[in-house]
Design a protein around this nucleic acid. Sequence first.
DNA 1: AAATTATGCTTTAGGTATAAAGCATCTTGA
DNA 2: TCAAGATGCTTTATACCTAAAGCATAATTT
Lengths: 164, 164
Amino acid sequence: MSDTHDHDPGEKYGGQLHGPTSVRMWLRMLSCTMVIEKRLRRRFIDQYKTTLPRFDVLAALDRRAEGMTMGDLSQMLLVSNGNVTAIVRQLQESGFVAVEAAEHDRRSLIATLTPKGTTHFAELAVAHHHWIEEMLGDVPEEVLQQLFDRLATVKTSIAAKGTQ
Amino acid sequence: MSDTHDHDPGEKYGGQLHGPTSVRMWLRMLSCTMVIEKRLRRRFIDQYKTTLPRFDVLAALDRRAEGMTMGDLSQMLLVSNGNVTAIVRQLQESGFVAVEAAEHDRRSLIATLTPKGTTHFAELAVAHHHWIEEMLGDVPEEVLQQLFDRLATVKTSIAAKGTQ
DNA sequence: AAATTATGCTTTAGGTATAAAGCATCTTGA
DNA sequence: TCAAGATGCTTTATACCTAAAGCATAATTT
């Protein structure tokens, strides 16, 4: 039996009511993101025997028919190089991804989707969209759009603060 | 040298422009959350030799002077029981948390903050707030408040969709 | 009250993440 | 040209997280 909880936890640290708006907003956003992400992971495993990181790699490659280097994937997905190595190897073993040395630089490896990988990703992407639309189904389109717009400000702010 | 990236990645899957608003909003929210969370983890390690999960436990206990059972912590923090066991043991070894058997049910263990733990958490909390306020410093108060309000709708929607 | 089931927690095995070191290749500059 | 450093990736050690099994204690059923 499962040992992990997946119900509404309230905000982490418990429905925080005090403190600056930035902190309250962060805790609420974190809470929402964690719940959604956990459900997505669960469904990927249960229904497709795959993982969110593998899906992320497939999605990145699907957008670039010409392929991507391991480093490109690492940067785009915000995971370590070593991690990309492992995920791509799995996808390669499953026949979803092909890897070949770059012509211009023999250190680089370029990963591309195989036809099988493209088909597989298409199926996953449909399910992924469906799950998200279902979870956010009660949020009015207008609110989603406002969130999307305001999150752009957040994105800009954290980008401006550099990596440190 | 570090091997992990921490700069603006654009949205995951690369600045998605198409698809339903719910999916676009989710990808943007996920991206923002991941960047902020990674930075927080990094700073906790670098500046305080601690981790976000340990901070989360301390924060939960700080709000409840009477203490919490391991199960309560697991539910509130959305992590497995086994994980709580490990984190609490670490905090116990550091002298920040005390654990004793519950009177009413000898299976239960109740964790409480020690005075040392309370002091330690206070220091961490100040830094934590400071980091968040800094990262979100360019987001106007008004936008933060709007995000906070609209995220309540998201929270409600995902809660309504149950755990499945 | 005994047997069964449920609950609270820990342990274990396995997957996944990072950081740091290592290897190969490329680039730079004297 | 060739030494020194930078770059792309992999490997290794370590940490953390989950699921599932296991153990002890409570609650329930008969």
